[in-house]
Design a protein around this nucleic acid. Structure first.
Length: 583
RNA sequence: GGCCCCGUCGUCUAGUGGACUAGGACGCAGCCCUCUCAAGGCUGAGAUCGCGGGUUCGAAUCCCGCCGGGGCUACCA
């Protein structure tokens, strides 16, 4: 970090006159090389290419916009049927052109924030390729906590560049899931903001321009290799026990006559290092990194490219993301450097959340990855949020229960853990139980309603107090109350127990039907007959509920009076006939 | 295989050279309370701080090596 601590170029939302992709691009570029409106640079499709020469090239050309005007930086040798080979022009030769463009389009960079560094901007950039991952929720939470703690801004961006797997409904699932958890963002596709659009699928022209720039400056090249050829290269390397890296065949000897291509970034020599807020310095030798594809054959950018560009363009200052992104970081940094864009101030790679098998939570092996599951099972969002905060972070005190505001003030990014965190249902249950017990009766009843659709609301409200200390999840309520809808099979009763049930039925018949009155009636009966509560209550419970249930007076009161008395009499009748039959 | 990250009770973790007979929480066991189940209270078991070397009067804490686990190694993100 700190390679480009260009705090001068902080841009506030008010100063941005043109919240369009092009405007944002100019500002982003302004961070580094100065604003360049390089419309002509875009046309990285060489002259003379036959139209419709493959999906990729068509797509790129279409989005590049311009008709192939002459540009000093790009020289495509024209040729008949053969696709011309692009000549890469060294950056030094481009300088006059850039200056020229600059004169026509003065930079839009707005110097603001006179004193001190600008407040941080962080982002969460999920891709709508499936249900919301628990790890995404945790990452979003840490970003949010960091932003709020530092008085910064939390951005939600949708990284939807995977055409094959994206689904619009999954984007909605992200909003729903995050809203459910109480995660709110300041800028995003649904709420807007000065750095939009916030959906990568709507920023394609930007990536195209940036890719063209990389191509023009020789930082990138077209790769015409087929997937099969690439696969063969990979296999060969494996057989020869050699670490695989792309051979750069298309950089040196591109095959002729092919039309479909990807764009690869040419990884420079040297080493790339960055500072991670919790791990310290991380450094890699660039030649352990193969030239990555940055634009797919269908013209869409690859994550590593679009994400890095957008982070810079959206002026994201701190990147908090999962540990699985550590290997991506050097590539993104090299890309930014090549583009002359500012690097983020800092990175923080959060430990992965692992399952019982110590492996990263995955769709295939861990049902607990799915955020929606927690809602279904009846976890309180505030409890899950609290638990998630503790997964990979701790305040350094013994406090474990936090409101959101408490988390915000306690959150200190340097206390993020380095080692992976194992997901633990029991700990979650315990925290959830704690939050349930803290709810008021009315609030609990309200939250319980969706989990007890078959019960009248009045019954749910009446049950809430008795349930409160017995629930670990709201979804446990139907089980605890299932006796209401299904009478137990009549239990075997000793003659003494039969007498207890019979007299209890009598006493209860004249009792008011409230927990309080029932309790008093039963206690009086026990005192009069010399029966202990344990002795008296058990047969009644078996007759009425047949299983573990709330305190007896609540168990009875939740049932309609006639139903309760009917069950008592029914159990009695069954036991008596059995006794007679057996005798 | 290569690159990178990590390594304190079963789990989440406190700990940054002496206050460590390594603390807390979840879970577990026992007891108390008690109409079942919970909740609550108390008590307890549980970690030779991955291993081996150093440095130091002294190391969980610093250094080196090893081992183990994980992540990444896609025209996924």
């Amino acid at each position: 970090m700190g390679q480009n601590p260009d705090h001068q170029s902080w841009v506030t939302s008010r100063e941005i006159e043109e919240p369009t992709p092009a405007g944002a691009l100019r500002q982003g570029l302004g961070l580094g090389l100065g604003a360049v409106a390089h419309r002509e640079l875009l046309d990285f499709e060489p002259q003379g290419t036959k139209p419709g020469a493959g999906v990729g090239s068509r797509h790129l050309r279409a989005l590049a916009g311009g008709r192939g005007g002459q540009h000093p930086g790009l020289t495509g040798a024209s040729g008949g049927d053969q696709l011309p080979v692009l000549r890469f022009v060294p950056p030094s030769e481009l300088v006059p052109a850039i200056q020229h463009q600059e004169a026509r389009h003065p930079p839009l960079v707005c110097p603001v924030m006179p004193d001190g560094p600008s407040p941080p901007r962080v982002r969460m950039a999920p891709s709508p390729t499936g249900y919301v991952h628990l790890g995404s929720a945790r990452t979003a939470l840490f970003n949010l906590l960091f932003a709020r703690h530092e008085g910064g801004c939390f951005v939600l961006r949708i990284d939807d560049t995977d055409l094959e797997r994206n689904r619009p409904e999954y984007e909605q699932a992200i909003y729903d899931g995050f809203h459910w958890l109480g995660l709110e963002w300041d800028e995003g596709p649904d709420v807007g903001g000065p750095f939009g659009p916030y959906r990568q699928s709507e920023r394609l022209d930007l990536y195209r321009e940036l890719a063209a720039r990389l191509l023009a400056t020789g930082h990138a090249y077209r790769c015409y290799c087929t997937r099969e050829e690439l696969e063969a290269e990979r296999r060969r390397a494996e057989q020869e026990h050699r670490p695989y890296r792309y051979s750069r065949r298309c950089l040196y000897r591109p095959p002729a006559g092919r039309h479909e291509f990807t764009v690869r970034f040419r990884v420079p020599e040297g080493r790339t290092a960055f500072t991670d807020l919790v791990r310290g310095k991380v450094e890699v030798d660039n030649d352990t990194v193969g030239d990555p594809v940055i634009v797919k054959a269908n013209g869409w950018p690859v994550y590593n490219f679009s994400s890095a560009c957008d982070d810079a363009l959206m002026q994201i200052t701190h990147i908090l993301r999962g540990e699985e992104h550590i290997p991506n970081t050097p590539v993104q940094l090299m890309l930014l450097d090549a583009l002359g864009m500012a690097r983020p101030r800092a990175f923080c790679h959060l430990p992965v959340i692992v399952g019982k098998d110590r492996k990263k939570l995955s769709k295939r092996h861990h049902p607990e990855v799915r955020l929606g599951l927690y809602q279904e099972l009846g976890y309180l969002p505030e409890a899950l949020l609290n638990y998630l905060a503790l997964l990979g972070w701790n305040p350094g005190t013994e406090q474990e229960i936090f409101s959101f505001d408490e988390l915000v003030s306690a959150f200190d990014i340097s206390r993020v853990q380095r080692s992976s965190a194992m997901f633990d249902w029991q700990k979650l249950d315990s925290i959830n139980g704690h939050y349930i017990r803290r709810l008021s009766d009315a609030e609990l009843a309200e939250r319980l309603l969706p989990y007890l659709p078959d019960l009248p609301a009045a019954t749910v409200r009446a049950a809430a107090p008795a349930l409160k200390e017995r629930l670990r999840r709201l979804g446990d309520a139907p089980g605890l109350l299932s006796y209401l809808g299904s009478p137990p099979t009549p239990p075997p009763l000793t003659p003494a127990q039969q007498e207890m049930v019979a007299t209890a039925a009598q006493a209860l018949a004249t009792s008011e039907w409230t927990p309080r009155a029932i309790e008093e009636a039963l206690n009086r009966l026990g005192r009069e007959r010399g029966w202990s509560r344990g002795a008296l209550f058990s047969p009644i419970r078996w007759a009425v509920a047949g299983r573990v249930s709330p305190p007896l007076h609540d168990t009875l009161a939740l049932l309609p009076k006639q139903e309760a008395l009917g069950r008592l009499r029914g159990a009695l009748a069954a036991a008596q006939s059995k006794t007679r039959g057996g005798a």
